[in-house]
Design a protein around this nucleic acid. Structure first.
Lengths: 241, 241
DNA sequence: TAACACAATTGGTACGTATCAATTGAGAAA
DNA sequence: TTTCTCAATTGATACGTACCAATTGTGTTA
């Protein structure tokens, strides 16, 4: 996991930055870091690049590398939901153990809207899974997922009560590490209002996406309708050139 | 701009992928590409990494590199709003020329909420700029921005009628290429409903962020309240481990 | 036929070198 | 003092090498 050289450097640097060990928020130059850590400059660069892409540091050619001062003040923002798949795991981080309530578990012919995304035809069957996710007894997400039968022939209502990611990882020796996602906003519909305890004036955030296995095959399409109190997505954007 | 070796390779590969020039959606192995393009394998890797991070290709050790089949089918999703700063430029892409209506232009003492973000104290003054953005005569965004006076002493109501990004680029020789952003959802308030022509049941998407100059100093905090029809954010997420 | 072992293929990591480009600062010149 | 010039500093790009690790396919063996 962390046996890679650049990751060790990365972690060390993260630690040093967090504990404010760099005078004037300025990091040593790359060549110095290289000799200090006894690793090649390339590895230093790789570690620094990760930090730069996260917005933790700024690099400026000819001048040096500096800690983003906002990072020190407001570290919380720098935990990106953006870099975390799997809703179950995501919610776990918050401290509360999430619950899942299965609303619906059926096998249907693949609906036209998702045939393209999941590479199935109208001949193919998919699981349609509707689940309600709760934290601390409060319902916060209505999740509707579609999974092609042929990718997981043994799925049961029982399994679906738990984390699908864990199931895929354990049983199918595949980890879903990638997803193509879209975030949107919509007024709540009757079902939302009922399940998520919303007023008609209160909206939901939509988070929908296609999840890929590590071999590139799309294996799940899912839409999350999220109570607007709990919808928040942070990201650091860099537009080079 | 595109004189960099890896960018030339990148563009070439993008073109070849888009026009479906790889049998079985499989790219040649890195070593072959290296000799084919007459560049080092490192440069090939760099180009491929960009594509992989965009979700355009999948790499699998021991097996090869493959085009994400969804990319070919549904290229539109792969235009990320996520990788585009500057709202004016962003909207321009859609084809319609955006208009800006200045609602409010004032200098005030820095509000407490943004003092931390912009590194100013209650002693400092900031511009408070409220603007309405329209496309094709339709109001779609209410924007509220704060900019420290000391960073742009010469700002006028006139300038504010245009793109602030362009102004900063031209006059201050600084380009804002980085931002720390948060996406949220809220019910519309009276002002939203009035300006954006929304019903009380219709929500707004919130997009707020801190924009940095290329030297790392935060120079603008701005909040966008977006008509929910026009709020959409696409992103490709990869969680390595 | 089926199961296994092994070699070839292919991407990943790491190191090191050479060179370029932006910035900074010191020292010379005005 | 101020301004200018130039060398030193510092990150960026590119190349090439060596070796590792996952996968695949082939050929052998049971």
């Amino acid at each position: 996991m962390a046996d890679l050289v650049y990751k060790q450097v990365l972690q060390s640097l993260q630690q040093r930055i967090k504990t404010n060990q760099f005078p004037h928020n300025r990091l040593p130059d790359e060549r110095s870091l290289s000799t200090e850590y006894q690793v090649s400059r390339s590895s230093i660069k790789r570690a620094l690049n990760v930090l730069a892409q996260q917005g933790v540091i700024f690099k400026k050619r000819g001048s040096g590398t500096f800690v983003n001062p906002l990072y020190l003040k407001n570290k919380s923002i720098f935990r990106y939901e953006g870099s975390n798949l799997g809703i179950t795991n995501n919610l776990k981080i918050e401290g509360y153990e999430p619950q899942i309530k299965v609303l619906d578990f059926a096998v249907i012919a693949a609906p036209p809207e998702i045939q393209e995304e999941l590479f199935v035809t109208s001949e193919d069957f998919v699981y349609q899974i509707r689940r309600l996710r709760l934290i601390d007894e409060r319902a916060i997400i209505i999740e509707t997922s579609y999974i092609p039968i042929k990718l997981a022939p043994a799925l049961t209502r029982q399994i679906v009560t738990g984390s699908l990611f864990d199931y895929f990882a354990k049983e199918l020796h595949h980890t879903g590490t990638k997803a193509l996602m879209t975030l949107k906003v919509q007024p709540s519909v009757a079902t939302d209002q009922e399940l998520l305890h919303l007023e008609p004036t209160e909206p939901v955030g939509i988070m929908e996406g296609i999840f890929f296995l590590d071999n590139g095959t799309p294996f799940e399409f899912s839409q999350l309708r999220i109570h607007y109190h709990y919808f928040s997505y942070n990201t650091f954007v860099d537009v080079a050139e």
